[in-house]
């Protein structure tokens, strides 16, 4: 484990904590896309099928369980929590996400490391994660004003992706035969989706003003 990978995992964890904090402290999920959260729940469940077959480390297993449990808990809150669900921006969260699931699965059937159930689902989860943020970004764009915790949530998610790219560059340079085409290319695509958001995030941070996305 190198420092970039650890920083990536920690910012990922932090993003989830910020989101849970927002929901818990404000009893509101306004500005959060339930569709993105549902996609993440699918991503983690599809990717971590290896929990049943491989053991890598206590850290690895623990993090996998955290990601699955937290994404399911967030989706549960947004759908069923008597107070939280009322603040869900249903009319803004209209991205047709079944298209993303279908396209990711189709791509996984074509491009995978091995044609086994586990490997196809792993590739599917990588492709789906790359685009899972789209409903969230569209929702933010539509609502214009972004509250602090929601802005920080998306910022930490983007930081997690950026650190993973640094991690791959580091591993590519230090480990013999390290190549990860599927994860690498998808990871670059995923990180690029955050570029626009980052731009406005840094401007608002520099000016010490509220984050606003142009319509």
């Amino acid at each position: 484990m190198n420092i970039f990978r650890l920083a990536g995992d920690m910012t990922h964890l932090l993003s989830i904590l910020v989101l849970l904090l927002k929901i818990y402290a404000t009893k509101s999920c306004s500005g959060i896309s339930r569709k993105t959260q549902e996609l993440y729940a699918i991503v983690f469940m599809a990717r971590y099928l290896d929990l049943f077959t491989d053991f890598i480390s206590v850290y690895n297993t623990f993090m996998k369980l955290i990601f699955i449990a937290s994404s399911l808990a967030i989706v549960w809150c947004m759908r069923f929590h008597p107070v939280v669900r009322r603040s869900y921006d249903r009319e803004l969260d209209t991205f047709r996400y079944f298209f993303l699931v279908g396209a990711s699965f189709a791509l996984a059937l074509v491009w995978h490391d091995k044609f086994t159930l586990q490997e196809v689902f792993w590739a599917f989860s990588i492709y789906l994660e790359a685009v899972a943020i789209l409903p969230q970004l569209v929702l933010l764009q539509r609502s214009g004003n972004v509250d602090n915790l929601t802005g920080q949530y998306v910022f930490f998610l983007g930081a997690y992706r950026a650190f993973y790219i640094l991690n791959w560059i580091y591993r590519y340079m230090t480990e013999p035969r390290f190549t990860r085409w599927i994860a690498g290319i998808s990871g670059v695509v995923q990180t690029a989706l955050y570029a626009d958001f980052f731009y406005y995030y840094f401007i608002s941070w520099k000016n010490n003003s509220k984050l606003k996305l142009p319509a």
């Binding site: 995992d9 990922h12 290896d50 491989d54 690895n60 993090m63 990601f67 792993w122």
Partner: peptide, 10 residues
């Protein structure tokens, strides 16, 4: 020499 691409990342 072929090394299995272990899925050790999250």
């Amino acid at each position: 020499l072929k090394v299995k691409n272990v899925k050790d990342e999250l």
